[in-house]
Simulated scan of single mutants.
Amino acid sequence: MPAIDSFQPQVSVIIVSADSGASLRDCVNSVLACTTPLELLLIDNASSDGVPQAIARAHENDARLKMIYNRGNLGFGPAVNRAAAQTRGQVLLILNPDCLLQQSALQRLLDVLAKEPKAGLVGAVVCDAQGVPDPASYRRDPVMQRALASLFKRGGEGVNVTGEMPDHLVEAEAVSGAVMLMPRRVFEWLNGFDEKYFLHCEDLDLCRRVRDGGWRVLLAGDVRIWHGKGGSSRHRPVFVSYHKHRGMWRWFRKFDPAARKPHLAAVVWLGIWAHFVVKIPGQLRRSMAR
């Protein structure tokens, strides 16, 4: 590899790890196998599994990999922001640590960003090991009526766009935060992720602010990326669930017109935290069964 001082990446890939497990190795290897000129910033939120350090040793001669170690768990958005401040590419790819990236997928996302007018953020369809798309790849803003429809599985327009997943480029209100490609200038103009989210809903927030800023959020439906189950979510389900519900409340307060009505806001607050409490016993049982 060329010396780091003379190497100019086209894209800067950012991965946040937090006890992400063995899948992190596969993710990093898949990124470094791509032929697009890139740099990879792996920022670790105080993992105790030793995997980030092992990755650093395995790739110590690869100038494309930069390791950043945090002394504590900063959360997802704050970690991305700190890594982004050290990037040199004009395009950022935010990638979950349990995703596998292929060169063809990366190139397609870059082509969309380059060719589509006012493209501010491009997502992909994330799939499980059987190739089944995650419905969260193609989403709407989680305003109260949609969130209720999704939560209680009742009729009406929910947060996830139902029906067959698109296999072509479409405009979206929000895409999955597992794979997000965007111009660095847009990310910086938005001041990155809102750091008052710790984990979950910060991607919905970012998509909304991209659109509010006059750019387009796009889903490249013909790009399919394998996405596993996060190690942090499996090991600490109640912790993750708490921050997910906390993120829901913050998004509601920032963007939902219903939040301007105190009585509705109170009902939503009670509903969110009641839902969190109800989920705890099942999460603990599943965690203990593993």
Rank of each mutant, 00 (worst) to 15 (best):
179 V>H: 13
186 V>L: 15
260 R>W: 00
288 M>D: 01
93 L>V: 04
204 L>H: 02
179 V>N: 06
55 I>P: 05
142 P>G: 03
97 P>E: 05
246 R>W: 07
173 E>M: 14
231 G>Y: 00
148 L>F: 08
150 S>V: 05
252 F>G: 10
15 I>V: 15
188 E>M: 15
203 D>H: 15
179 V>E: 06
196 K>T: 04
175 V>H: 08
266 A>N: 08
178 A>E: 03
129 A>T: 03
152 F>P: 03
51 V>T: 06
113 L>W: 08
14 I>G: 11
23 S>R: 11
120 G>W: 07
258 A>N: 04
243 H>V: 02
134 D>E: 11
122 V>H: 14
161 V>P: 13
121 L>P: 03
140 R>Q: 01
72 G>M: 12
187 F>L: 14
148 L>A: 14
121 L>D: 04
69 Y>W: 09
37 P>V: 10
250 R>I: 08
256 D>N: 09
259 A>M: 07
23 S>M: 15
227 H>A: 08
247 G>E: 06
253 R>F: 00
240 V>W: 10
13 V>Q: 03
60 E>D: 07
88 R>C: 05
137 S>N: 04
80 V>P: 07
109 L>F: 13
222 D>T: 07
81 N>C: 02
9 P>E: 06
274 A>T: 13
141 D>S: 13
46 A>I: 04
194 D>H: 05
191 N>F: 02
184 R>Y: 02
99 C>M: 14
69 Y>M: 11
248 M>F: 11
25 R>K: 13
281 P>A: 14
221 G>A: 12
197 Y>R: 08
100 L>I: 05
175 V>D: 09
253 R>P: 00
1 M>L: 06
160 N>Y: 09
22 A>V: 08
74 L>T: 02
18 A>Y: 12
181 L>Y: 01
274 A>H: 09
145 Q>C: 11
101 L>V: 07
6 S>R: 14
224 R>C: 09
65 L>S: 02
17 S>D: 04
148 L>Q: 09
234 R>Q: 13
272 I>C: 12
127 C>W: 02
119 A>V: 02
96 N>K: 11
88 R>I: 00
260 R>N: 06
33 A>D: 12
132 V>N: 11
169 L>K: 08
160 N>S: 09
182 M>H: 05
63 A>R: 10
148 L>D: 01
183 P>I: 07
247 G>C: 14
231 G>C: 12
218 L>H: 08
280 I>H: 11
207 C>E: 02
272 I>D: 05
11 V>Y: 12
33 A>K: 14
236 R>D: 05
158 G>F: 10
40 L>T: 02
